[in-house]
């Protein structure tokens, strides 16, 4: 039991993202309302964004901005050496900027489609729509 707890606490970021992902997946599979499914999809995507952001983090590290960058002269060579260990990894965060854009675009297209479905069937409940299709 103690071991299990330790595993959960030590890797808590993974547990959080998996829980969120499963909530999203449940909403996409189990919900009947099309917009609720879209919300589920958004949660699902966000979970993966959180996963990426969390893997860039390091204990005791700072934001990846070099304080002694361009324009400062007169420093000794030693002062200019960058210790990568002191900074969090910025790459996953940068990747996620792109993924957020993709997520927003997907959400927009999904909502637009939901509006089209609503215009046609006057409802967003999937079972009612399927019943209308079957009637024809």
């Amino acid at each position: 039991m103690g071991d299990l707890l330790q595993i959960i606490v030590a890797k808590y970021n993974y547990w959080i993202y998996i829980t969120l992902m499963m909530i999203g997946l449940y909403a996409m599979i189990g919900k009947n309302n099309l917009v609720k499914k879209i919300v589920g999809m958004s949660i699902f995507q966000t979970a993966i964004i959180l996963f990426y952001v969390s893997i860039g983090v390091k204990k005791g590290a700072t934001i990846p901005i070099l304080e002694h960058g361009h324009g400062e002269h007169g420093h000794s060579a030693a002062a200019l050496i960058v210790h990568a260990v002191d900074y969090v990894n910025p790459l996953p965060h940068v990747l996620m900027l792109t993924a957020i854009v993709v997520g927003v675009a997907t959400l927009g297209v999904a909502l637009a489609l939901a509006i089209k479905v609503h215009n046609r069937f006057n409802t967003l409940e999937e079972d009612e729509i399927l019943a209308q299709i079957r009637e024809k």
Partner: peptide, 10 residues
Amino acid sequence: TLNYLYIGTI
């Protein structure tokens, strides 16, 4: 298409 979108996004 909306159903495709859900699956495609997953």
